[in-house]
Design a protein around this nucleic acid. Structure first.
Lengths: 103, 103
DNA sequence: TTTACATTTCAATGGCTCTTGAAATAAACA
DNA sequence: TGTTTATTTCAAGAGCCATTGAAATGTAAA
């Protein structure tokens, strides 16, 4: 992953609503959540939730699937793993200093 | 770390120049690099480099120290470790699905 | 004590991001 | 078919971000 791509992914995570969405989808597990559930959980309007869902989906952090009238969103763990990998391997070059402060 | 704080840190990383700065500082090691070295390496104007250095410093990813006429910048690994920890522990709740796709 | 060097700060500009509410799309049901 | 439900898309506006070049700050050297 190059720096431009990584920057694009970090931008997708640079918003509290979007981080909250990811966390809710992690908690929800494999069955995910509908757009409406997410908007309600966030206390946001439908269009605001949709805007952030679109940003996350475009970056590959979540996927969606229609289920009758609802759209069901789920988290994509591999995209998060890729970002962790970028930070530790690419960016910090597996530096011992980083390891040393693993929490 | 809360979602607002995490979002703030992700925003600091959401730019290719800033990611490039961190990488250069990792490569440079404990003695770091001067602002001028960084601007030159980036192919950016002094003020542009300074702008991005200020954003990274404000977020705690780098530190600076005056050394004669230059300002020497170094990377702060603990801030990066904290972000990795946020992604894996807080955001993904140490989910086995995340582990499963560790690269 | 001027002069040069290293870096930041400032002001202006263009572009992007987020929010809101209204309109459009899509699916299910009566 | 017409209506309700679920969600996205669109347009407009406010605010933030990044870039540029000029001016200001701080430090060392002549």
């Amino acid at each position: 992953m190059g720096e431009d791509e990584a920057a694009r992914l970090f931008h997708a995570l640079s918003n509290a609503d979007r981080l909250s969405i990811i966390r809710r989808l992690v908690v929800a597990g494999p069955q995910g959540l509908s757009a409406g559930d997410i908007a309600q959980g966030l206390g946001a309007s439908a269009s605001r939730a949709s805007f952030h869902l679109a940003a996350l989906a475009e970056a590959g952090f979540i996927h969606r699937q229609r289920q009758s009238r609802s759209l069901r969103y789920t988290v994509d763990y591999s995209s998060i793993a890729a970002l962790v990998s970028f930070l530790t391997h690419d960016c910090c070059r597996d530096s011992p200093e980083l390891r040393a402060c693993r929490l």
